[in-house]
Amino acid sequence: MDLIEIFLTTGFWAATIRIVSPLIFATLGELICERAGVLNLGIEGIMTIGAMAGWMWVYQGGDLWTGVMFAALVGGTFGLVHSIFTVYLGLSQHVTGIGVTMFASSLSYFIYRMMLPDATTPPKIIPFQTYPIPGLSELPIVGEAVFTQTPMTYLALLCVPIVWYMLYRTPVGLAVRMAGENPVAVEAQGIDVLAIRTGAVVVGSGLMAVGGAFITMSAFDAFFFGMINGRGWIAIALVVFASWRPGKALLGAVLFAGLEAFQVRAQQVAGASILPYQFYLMLPYLLSIVAMVIMARRARYPKALLVPYRRGERV
């Protein structure tokens, strides 16, 4: 099989959509936080604890969908911690985020070990199964690639228009975007900037955690150590690449996932004859850096990103 032929297989497109799902959740989550003016470097840890919490819920006998909700709730709680530090106390968003990541991921591993002290091979759950959408799934290529996925993938794809609508067509969305651009103007409208920012960070963190949960509850069926493997950081790069727009975030994530799906297949086709496997694995990280560099010149950061807001203080 030729390398070009990979793009013609439905398997490639189906894999792309599968890989893109957690990235969509995570990227949208980070996008909401940053649009409100708060950089959330807790993302990597929040995804880890989301992956653990959702999986553990199901492993303990819970239902899959309540597991997703539980993951979102746990993620939102860590988002609340992040916003108490960065929004209410105005502490460094960088250091707090790193602290949240360290705390959340180590706590995930601790809880996992506490609940399963003797597990040598990671135990499995019955994850979300593919649910072909009647009618649509019979379409050529698209039917199998997009409409024969698990319900969580559909949820991810649905989140893009929902987040877009919320941000651009509702008063709450306007307040969120203003909180990230010009918080004084938000205050002038009689809206509580701190509450808006906190809400955005909590909701965004919930989405990140659902992205993590996708990995243990839909893509795989078990929780491993180091399973998120930098996906959170990649999502942050994708937010920059997307210029903080949900539609472009989807585009960037699909591009990224496509290249990821391609490299896995290229590895099988071309094998180690061209490149050792480590270099294939480097590609996603290299691409994220390249993506940031390409868009950086045109990047229009939310003006109040990283700037804590204190009521009554002149800017």
Partner: peptide, 20 residues
């Protein structure tokens, strides 16, 4: 019988506490 990850948790929590 306490998982060794307690050390990492302690480090993460310390970072947050020292900020405050």
């Amino acid at each position: 019988a306490i998982p060794t990850y307690i050390a990492d948790v302690l480090v993460g929590v310390s970072v947050l506490c020292v900020l405050i």
